[in-house]
Amino acid sequence: MDSPAATVTSDFAIQTDKLSLWYGSFQALFDVDLQIKQGIITSLIGPSGCGKSTFLRSINRINERLGYVRTTGRIEVLGHDIYAPDVELVQVRKQVGMVFQRPNPLPISIRDNVLFGYGIHNKGPKPSKEDQDRVVEDALKTVLLWDQVKDRLRHKGTSLSLEEQQKLCIARLLPVKPTVLLMDEPCSALDPKGTEAVEELIWQLRGEYTIVIVTHNMAQARRASEECIFMLLGEVIEHEPTEDMFVTPKQQQTADYIEGRYG
């Protein structure tokens, strides 16, 4: 909670300093130093197993679910060290929302899905039904899902199409007003039409949220992100504005990957 740092570094939503991570004895990240700007979309690319998902998952500390993960170094979100001993995990996860590769709405109603995080983080008295209705409507409108589902809010979230499920998974993060949205290959389970729709939505969310998106799909990184990070074998190779990286990569490894020589 070093507030001076917070003012100095306010341009950056996420900063890491010598972040290393081990799964048991396997080291997945090596001294990752990154500064991710606030309010833009940053994509993480790299071949399978390069550590991009691992990096993403350590930003909301969901990696810790696996008991055998060890992390060293620092991750700051908006100037706060999220691995500091006095930090409340619940607050980290409130600030940093996560969207997974496979849409994973909870097996409860669409409405309850949207209200799940809201209910968890609400410390005051239970919000009135009108408040809840408003929250649900706002969130679903933001993800462009309201018109499709407004007549079946009581239906199960799992009954929606995959595209709608993924939108619902984004919508349920919004009521708690996170600053960072992490997306782990959010479109890889969707068909091209769904991919387009979700990409469009992500593009609209930028500015209000800092979005970090892991993708396998270089075309997606190119069209749907403003900055791009290329990782290889647990290390950051290059971090550039997306246009620059795809037009004039500075590192040979980046160029090789972008041109499809491996990966």
Partner: peptide
Amino acid sequence: PDGYREAAEAMGA
């Protein structure tokens, strides 16, 4: 499915 637990935990549950 473990995905349910993961989803809820990622939201801060």
